[in-house]
Nucleic acid binder design. Sequence first.
DNA 1: CGTTCTATTGACTCGATTCAAACTAAGTGG
DNA 2: CCACTTAGTTTGAATCGAGTCAATAGAACG
Lengths: 267, 267
Amino acid sequence: MQKGFAFSKLADRLTSIAELPENDLELLTRMPSTIGHFASRDHILRKTDQPSRCCVLLQGYLCWKDDNDGQITSIHVPGDIPDLHALIAPRLEAHLIALGPAVVAFVPHGFFQEITSLSSGLSHALRLLGIIDAACLRNWIVNLGSRDSLTRVAHLICEITMRLQAVGLARDDRFASPFTQSDLASACAISAVHANRIIQDLRRKEVLKWHSRTITVSNWQALTRLAGFEPDYLGLRNSAEFQCRPLQPSIIPSEPSELSIPRQPYS
Amino acid sequence: MQKGFAFSKLADRLTSIAELPENDLELLTRMPSTIGHFASRDHILRKTDQPSRCCVLLQGYLCWKDDNDGQITSIHVPGDIPDLHALIAPRLEAHLIALGPAVVAFVPHGFFQEITSLSSGLSHALRLLGIIDAACLRNWIVNLGSRDSLTRVAHLICEITMRLQAVGLARDDRFASPFTQSDLASACAISAVHANRIIQDLRRKEVLKWHSRTITVSNWQALTRLAGFEPDYLGLRNSAEFQCRPLQPSIIPSEPSELSIPRQPYS
DNA sequence: CGTTCTATTGACTCGATTCAAACTAAGTGG
DNA sequence: CCACTTAGTTTGAATCGAGTCAATAGAACG
């Protein structure tokens, strides 16, 4: 992993939602971090932990999973800081778990407190990050509450795709899906059996392919229409760039990029 | 409405989640506000608004309601600031609507920015407010995702009861319920018909009464057990006080208090 | 090369929705 | 103060989406 990768993934994420001057990016480069590699299902944080560091996700996926009934309440992609709120409220409400192999940069709380006091721009961007997380939760409530299971799954895939693209991944509408259909089911609050049937349905409708731990969105327009996906809530500055992309993603049949499918030094 | 009521409701709420020194409370007394009275179903904020003031709820209930499918994503009780996030991100994702008659104090964004810079304690408390809101959303995702409809309704009533009590209302386990069964259904993502059957079931189980726009929790223990209610996520400093209350709330058959059932100057 | 995890399929069951109708309470205006 | 209107609640019957159970097929892993 190249030097400075930890900070640059976070910088990608922050600039996707807020304009940051050079000064602020310069501040980010000083981010101290310890890199952690995790295998699928590993616990990054347990409900009982009282962390003094934040997790900046660099590769792979993490999720918050409810202790009691295994409901996944949010899924995180590279650049996210799933436990940013622990800066203010040290109590955790769920487990933070790796969905597939993941690389995490642990950054001391103190660093964020420092840059918050040094730069109003970064302070604003970090708060925005928290607010957008909440907006995602609200959107997910609408999904679970008001949409049928086909729509839910389609919507989740839309969201993940766009969030990956916001940090420079999945540019060709392909991305690693190391999570299982059961994981998907836990997120969408449906049974694993039903999740499987939904995915088959999406395949039959020719909007996506899901093979060998890779999802390929073959018809973005149809998928978003099916999902009723309106990405405003993601708060992306340049979301139009993705929405209005050409139908055929790329002519060159590229391999899934290095960044979307993490090399697996742990397997 | 007595002078200073606006600030004191917010003070009640903030002290329910954080310890605040006298200085900070003194700062709150200077809160400038414009009082607004709303009838049931009134829109306090529309999705398209770009407010420059926050809403501090003084009496009644507000909810965020999704534009497209009417899903209620959160319910707010007196002391709450439903649109606190608009301080950072001016874009709204839903409508803010009155569930029953409501009284709101509009407070300029500038005031919160000011007290945030003046007092680290208030800054912390306000951020905590936002984080607890998010924790409620997460909890609600678990509810919609993993629990059956009886449990959902029971859980919502538990949550509202405890949040009211945190700001000094519903002390006797009774509170105004000006919302309709359809509102409840929109929150719990069930049909209105089914909501009605659930409520009848809860009545039959003798855990609550719902008559003449008032809900009476007649068996708190049974209701929380039924709901699997674990109120940690509400972040209340003194939640044990409520959890361990005696089974029989109060001997004196009191009228619902003035504060829980707003007088209705608009009818 | 067997073990284990994941994906797939079919049959049955059940919770919840929908539709429709009746009933009740709460305004509104003559 | 009563007739009329409207909003909300209650009930029953038919239907459907999704869950559960159970068994098999396939992929990944040590």
